[in-house]
Amino acid sequence: MRALLWFPLLSLLALTLPHLSTTSPTSPTSSSSQRPVIGILSQEVSRYDPTPDAESYIAASYVKFVESAGARVVPVMINQTEEEYKALFYSLNGILLPGGGVSIYSSGYARASKIFYDLAIEANQKGDFFPIWGTCLGFEQLAYLTAQKPVLVNTNTTSVTLPLNFTNEAKGSRMFQDFPDELMRALETEALTENSHMWSVSLETYNSNDDLKTFYKVLSTNTDGRTEFISTWEAYDYPIYGVQWHPEKNPFEWTRAYYAHSSNAVKVTFYFANFFVNEARKSVHSFESEEAVRKLLIYRHSQTYAGDQRPFEQIYYF
């Protein structure tokens, strides 16, 4: 219990510990491992956005999620060329595909996701470590990219916070290996995971789809009372991770009464953030110079308050 009470201090200490890289079995050889830069994919604005001249956006809570564990963020814009995405891929240490409401089949978000997914598969197969994290829409995007066909079913899960139903695979997973037992029990018994989705990957669909079943290890499921769906998974052979729910909302979003803000809810967020950023630390990708990365960092953009129109408190518009 003391470890949980002192988590903010311990998380900072954890970030200084050595982590394995793909080029060395004992320690990282690149300074990028201690200065990770993670891309967060933007997506098309909606009719509800208060900035009509913007083309795309990123909710600030995703940026804060990554920054809370010691990484910097570069926004990945939609509608860039494949060559531009490829150059960015070899500079970033990982990418986060955030939640949202655009098409996973035909949007700029979908196109960019596929390019980064394909590059990551190819790179990881060659021993070039590159992690991907998908949240909600990002989870659904990963499912489509892996199955190479639509696999989602409709569920009644647009505004509910739930405990997780862990599978037997969770305890030995990479994602949960550093979670304290107390926090795992809290995840099982307390409503700590916020769901804002109307589409899911049902367990039935997963079990009948060889592409999904051989690629992803299911770590938790949930149900809307009618359909059991996958809520957390990780790839067997790649550093690719997905959650159908929203860990970033617990500490950073306040527009909905059902968002979880308890001490355990916040700890869950930071353990996940710490895990993903530590995965990014294993990547030896880097920008050609500090000046080059500084030109692209999200620090150069301003946040806009959007809590009156959107479920996000703050948004970056591009």
Rank of each mutant, 00 (worst) to 15 (best):
L4N: 13
L4E: 14
L5V: 11
F7P: 00
L9V: 13
L9C: 09
L13F: 15
L15Q: 13
H19T: 12
T26A: 08
S27I: 10
S30L: 09
R35G: 00
G39M: 09
Y48N: 14
P50A: 00
F65A: 13
V66P: 01
R72Y: 08
N79K: 02
E82F: 05
E83T: 11
L88A: 03
Y90I: 00
S91N: 11
G99D: 12
G99F: 05
G99H: 09
G99W: 06
G100I: 10
S103H: 01
S103V: 00
A112Y: 04
I115K: 12
Y117F: 15
Q125E: 15
G134M: 02
C136P: 07
L137T: 08
G138P: 07
G138M: 03
A143T: 15
T146K: 00
P150Y: 06
N156P: 04
T157P: 11
T157G: 14
T161S: 13
L162K: 12
L164W: 09
F166Y: 06
E169G: 02
E169Q: 10
A170E: 00
G172F: 01
Q177C: 04
E182K: 05
L192Y: 07
L192Q: 08
S196R: 09
H197S: 13
S200R: 00
D210Q: 12
K217H: 08
G225N: 13
F229C: 03
I230R: 00
W233N: 08
Y241S: 04
G242R: 00
H246A: 03
E248K: 00
F275N: 08
R281C: 07
S283R: 01
S286G: 06
E288T: 13
K295G: 07
L296A: 03
Y299T: 10
Y299D: 15
R300S: 06
F312W: 06
I315Q: 05
Y316D: 07
